[in-house]
């Protein structure tokens, strides 16, 4: 297959602080305060406070409001509706399947099409709309799990492991470390889908976000606060907390906990051991290797740009598959707790 000719997209400029869209003076997921920010989703490394105007989906704006108490002038962008953002640039948001409200952004200018994915996954997720393949010339993708060792197993098996661990410990509890936005709610929904309808206990840092999800139409079943209750009440229960709380003083209140963590990194034993995890649950809100390469094949862009993650391996794959690709040196995108 011949390599397609390189397009000359001088209007879109990758910068260490985000993707800069020059004709309309707007930034995508900037890591510094800017006049106009197009935000793909609510995770703190993509959605920061202090901007002039924020263009995002309804759910992302609600999440940012909760986190920053109003991040700037909100401009709500409906899914799949092209919006003129000035300078001859049209932006259209499509679902990215990452967390509630997450979007990829299609930018069109002078007949040229660029898609910025933000973070995304291809697996079904009961808390958000699934990723859609959007044809484009330049595909700007993440590569958090961009190594062929990463293959996320079906989530049903991971839920089974979690429920088995709970059953084996009537006198203890299972403490699940899960990122506060997205992962926690997905784990709760999947537990419900697996038929678990006991109350689920939450660390204080998860309570507001779970309440917001429910408000935005994602039912989570009965949730209880794990703060300020008797140790005995937590026996035989599942408790969700941010990953950082697992090995910290907070966990001393739990009765004989098994330490579980829901993260794509749990696929690698050493990563799990480093974090003192006893029950690794391989659950990720990002693409695994096969999904990344499958997505590039389906989108079939003229050129692929890789924003963050393990870009070296993905570039190598593109090279082996006769695809033009480059890495963007982006700063401030984190992947530790996914």
């Amino acid at each position: 297959m011949p390599i397609k000719p390189a397009p000359d997209f001088s209007w879109i400029k990758p910068d260490p602080h985000g993707i800069f869209v020059e004709p309309c003076n707007a930034w995508i997921d900037p890591s510094k305060p800017v006049e106009t920010a197009l935000v793909t989703h609510g995770h703190a490394d993509h959605a920061r406070g202090g901007h002039g105007a924020v263009f995002a989906t309804r759910e992302t704006l609600a999440i940012m409001d909760l986190r920053y108490g109003g991040a700037g002038r909100d401009v709500m962008i409906p899914m799949r509706e092209p919006v003129d953002i000035g300078g001859g640039v049209t932006a259209t948001y499509f679902p990215a399947g990452h967390v509630l409200g997450s979007a990829q952004i299609l930018l069109e200018h002078a007949g040229e099409r660029v898609v910025v994915t933000g973070d995304y996954k291809r697996r079904p997720d009961p808390t958000c709309e699934p990723f859609e393949v959007v044809p484009c010339d330049i595909f700007i993708t993440e590569a958090t799990f961009g190594l062929p060792v990463f293959k996320h197993p079906p989530i049903a098996g991971e839920m089974r492991k979690l429920l088995d661990a709970r059953e084996q410990r009537p006198e203890g509890c299972v403490a699940v470390g899960a990122y506060a936005l997205g992962k926690a709610q997905r784990v709760i929904c999947e537990l419900r889908r697996a038929g678990y309808d006991e109350p689920i206990y939450l660390h204080g840092a998860l309570e507001k976000m779970c309440a917001l999800y429910e408000e935005l139409g994602v039912p989570l079943g009965e949730l209880r606060s794990a703060t300020g209750i008797k140790k005995d009440e937590l026996k035989g229960q599942i408790v969700l907390c941010p990953p950082s709380a697992l090995n910290d003083r907070w966990s001393r209140r739990l009765p004989d906990p098994v330490t579980a963590m829901a993260s794509g990194w749990m696929r690698v034993r050493q990563r799990a051991r480093q974090r003192n995890v006893e029950l690794p649950l391989v659950i990720s809100d990002h693409c695994d290797w096969d999904e990344l390469t499958q997505t590039i094949t389906e989108v079939d862009p003229a050129e692929t740009w890789v924003t963050h993650g393990r870009e070296e391996a993905l570039l190598r794959w593109c090279q082996l598959n006769q695809r033009r690709a480059r890495a963007l040196a982006m700063v401030g995108y984190e992947d530790e707790d996914d």
């Binding site: 062929p148 293959k151 690698v268 034993r269």
Partner: peptide, 23 residues
Amino acid sequence: VDPVLYTLSRDYVGDTAETASLL
């Protein structure tokens, strides 16, 4: 497996047997 992708994976995982079992 492509040797470059193998080496990148091995360096990340840090253990030959585990890398092989995953790849």
